[in-house]
Amino acid sequence: MPPRCIDNLFLRFIQLVSLVSIVSLLFIIFFLVKESYLIVQEKPILTVFTDPAWHPLDGQFLLLPMMVGSLLIMLGAMLIALPIGLLTAILCRYYAPRWFATIIQRLMEVFAGIPAVVYGFWGVMVIVPAIAAWQAPGTSLLAGILVLTFIVTPGVTIISYHNLSQVNQTLLHSAIALGLSRYNIIRHIIFPEVKHGLITATTLQSGRAIGETLAVLMVCGNVVQLPGSVFEPIRTLTSNIALEMAYAMDTHRSALFLSGLLLLLIVLVLAFIAESMQKPKAESQ
């Protein structure tokens, strides 16, 4: 066979192989839609907002408390992790001595790779009892937020640091030459430069936070309710799936798949925002 022919065959072959990723994604979406079809067929879609409660065996499918739980826990964790991560990155980049910055960087890389279930376990052993000593029962929205903060902080720190180190050096040199103060350089020169990157990072990490399942399940108490305070237990969409998937049948099962589809949509919207935020930066370069 002439090499030309082999080259062509090879190209066709790898094109075919590349289709695997696309087909997998389509399959995932197809199955989520197919499995959630049953409930949409039987009840109007708004039923997840209007039913009196979540009693799937009696045909009541109120998903609202779980959605609120997921959102609260995500927002709470991001509200703590974002300033801490960003400030830590600023510290490493502009204030701390080099050795200290390296230690924190390496540490964050290690912790970013640690399984979420480890944080969940540690939350059960340390965070929940600590909260319980203060306000019973301990398994609560607050515990979930804290554990999730542990999970997303390393990622936020790493990406913030990465964004900071990509700031145009000439810009910094000019700012220094102009005699601007360190605070003013960071606040007025560096921050506008990295803003888009930070928003991207935040949205991506939010996607991770809302998709987190077992660590949250372990510490949140999993009571289906709208929490009155941060000390009350909640249940998230993800934990709901993990808890009930094993025995769910028919419309109940279908409702769980519907909540999976919903999660996927939320994460995709976040990913879309992240991507569209990246654009202005790419164009300016």
Partner: peptide, 25 residues
């Protein structure tokens, strides 16, 4: 571009949703 878009989406799928798909399929 389509492939890259699919890969980014795939990377964003929450693991519990991936688990549901694996279970159903």
């Amino acid at each position: 571009r389509l492939l890259r878009y699919a890969l980014n989406t795939l990377a964003a799928v929450p693991s519990i949703v991936m688990g549901m798909f694996g279970f159903a399929f």
